[in-house]
Design a protein around this nucleic acid. Structure first.
Lengths: 105, 105
DNA sequence: TAGATATTTAACTAATACTTTAATTGCTTA
DNA sequence: TAAGCAATTAAAGTATTAGTTAAATATCTA
């Protein structure tokens, strides 16, 4: 797993915001660009960094390129790191309880 | 919470390694520097970035400055972000189950 | 107090990253 | 095929970052 690239990719607020947008639905590059005060090439670069880190995937459908979030990749990297640094920290355990109560698998 | 600073701080392999070292025990700046092929001033900078992000704390005791990990800060930020992006992703739930089974509070 | 050790700050250099404009590629449709 | 939209790549400039050495600050000890 490309931990270096993941953390590098996350070290940018616009890139984290892109992930947040993609968490709700897949979007075209243009959709994403329209949500930022930034040129299309700039967004394209950010997207390629996110894709290089394995955090998103892209698929061309006709004229458009659709991007979607790779949720497992993101969560695996973050929790993997968190557990490595801090195997039994409180907050994560609290989240765990919450999920367990909800019956989340 | 300074999410920006946290992710900025984590976007550096040596800084993540420092956190890993500190996860086991508190260490002086010199202890840490001796583990890297880097000058003391460079390490000092890394430490101040980590401290600025709230990920570590420092305390001078006599001649030495001891650094320790702020576990909650790290885990809160990472899991907070992971849950924001991806509230019910598989891996985290898997970790949750594991912890629940162990009886981890 | 003088000297030695630990750490940080300052000043500088080299390498990276970000953004913009301009040019290019891929696809659609008239 | 030509025109037009979507998206990326290329080129170039600016800004930020990481690292170095040298100097300053803090503390300990002889």
């Amino acid at each position: 797993m490309a931990v270096d690239q993941v953390f590098e990719a996350l070290a940018s607020r616009p890139r984290r915001e892109i992930l947040a947008y993609l968490s709700a639905q897949e979007l075209t590059a243009g959709d994403i660009a329209s949500r930022f005060d930034m040129t299309a090439p700039a967004i394209s670069r950010h997207l390629s960094i996110l894709e290089g880190a394995g955090l998103v995937s892209s698929e061309r459908r006709g004229q458009y390129v659709y991007y979607r979030l790779n949720k497992d990749s993101l969560v695996n990297t973050l929790t993997g790191f968190a557990f490595e640094i801090c195997p039994t920290a409180g907050p994560l355990k609290r989240e765990s309880r919450k999920l367990a109560r909800k019956g989340g698998v």
